[in-house]
Design a protein around this nucleic acid. Structure first.
Lengths: 210, 210
DNA sequence: TTTCTATGTGACTACCCAGTCACTTGCTCT
DNA sequence: AGAGCAAGTGACTGGGTAGTCACATAGAAA
């Protein structure tokens, strides 16, 4: 976490640094992101940055956490309504909110997206603080519940289904951020949400003609 | 492409260089991969490498192409049987072959996997030589045909379905290579193929309980 | 033996990087 | 005014990188 000096900073300066660092980590992987460029763009001395943060990883963790918190804020309303929804409605909401968040906050979504692409699993787990295995367990639980309620077929494999659901979610966001400009994403938000609906239809009913 | 001098090399030396470069690009992104490390491990002088290849990108293209060719060889038998299969059988075969190839050739699959993770679309399209859009068209065609034969529901969106099929394929391979050791992949090949079957079942029939 | 050509070489250039530290600045309290 | 302390600074260290080039070597031809 940042040192106290960082929080003692005047808000404008602090926000500027956060803004610039967000940009850099949204456009580059952890390794490719440059501290030198960040301090130049923020208009501060390199030594100053090391008065605020322990090292590059410390800054990265902080920026990643900020982006995760923004997403949590975005999802909080949804979380409360969660109980009243059927499984497939829940997944649809998750996808829709995920795509909408990425459309409205492409830089923040980009940071998380780049993080997912990191190869070094040790590094990832160190940053997340938890084993990646565990983050799938929430979905597995949801699917099990849906099976018990008769919403989801008992013939499907829970773990495989959880994998499918999470991976498609990240694939959509990755597609948006990798192959569309921020401008295009923003302008085609409705169209993207429509595609999410179409994808959910396939997942609900399958490919097979009846 | 490599210079003539590369092909004039004694086979052993050439293979050694290919082997070492394959390793480096399987473990690192294009930017993180180090020419200096490659020449050290191959036991040649740095100047020599530049007698064989124009630059880093030239070497990368060559290694990537070799890995693609190996995969093509792997798929060639399957390609011939393609006509006799139903759509879902075709997709299953594609996934099974893809997973089996990655299990048997984790380094080669790793190169392609790392390439997919590159952020710079300009770079990717330059290397591929074609627009990424076009590579989806094959699948869209297959799905259209399957709709006409009544194998696939007319209610699903072709483009979205093609996206789903390709992305799940890469997600599975990415999962294998990122979260499993080569050893684990090799030992659990049968289990992985079983998971592919289970995933195909979901895609064929959907989540919904009947 | 001399000459020619192809190939091999590694020190070197010009760059980029994260992180450090001796020093300076500016503010507050006495 | 002076002391003390928190914060700001940028030249510097040590390390990495891709790519170059003047020279060395080796084999073939004359």
């Amino acid at each position: 976490m940042p040192k106290q000096t960082f929080f003692n900073l005047p808000e404008e300066k602090r926000e500027k640094l956060i803004d610039v660092a967000t940009d850099e980590f949204a456009k580059n992987s952890f390794n490719s992101a440059s501290i030198t460029k960040i301090v130049e763009k923020a208009g501060i001395a390199k030594g100053s940055l090391y008065q605020y943060f322990e090292d590059k990883k410390d800054l990265y963790k902080y920026i990643l956490e900020l982006s995760a918190n923004k997403k949590k804020e975005y999802l909080i309303e949804w979380m409360n309504r969660l109980q009243h929804l059927s499984f497939i409605e829940m997944i649809r909401e998750l996808y829709v909110k995920g795509v909408a968040f990425a459309a409205d906050n492409p830089r923040l979504a980009g940071i998380a997206n780049n993080f997912m692409k990191e190869n070094d699993t040790k590094f990832k787990e160190e940053i997340l603080g938890i084993s990646i295995e565990k983050s799938n367990q929430l979905f597995e639980q949801l699917i099990e519940n849906a099976k018990n309620k008769g919403e989801v077929s008992r013939n499907i494999d829970t773990k495989v289904a959880a994998f499918l659901v999470t991976n498609l979610n990240t694939s959509i966001v990755d597609y948006m951020l990798t192959y569309m400009t921020y401008e295009e994403i923003f302008q085609n938000k409705e169209e993207l949400l429509d595609k999410v609906d179409k994808m959910l239809f396939i997942m609900e009913n399958g490919f097979k003609a009846k």
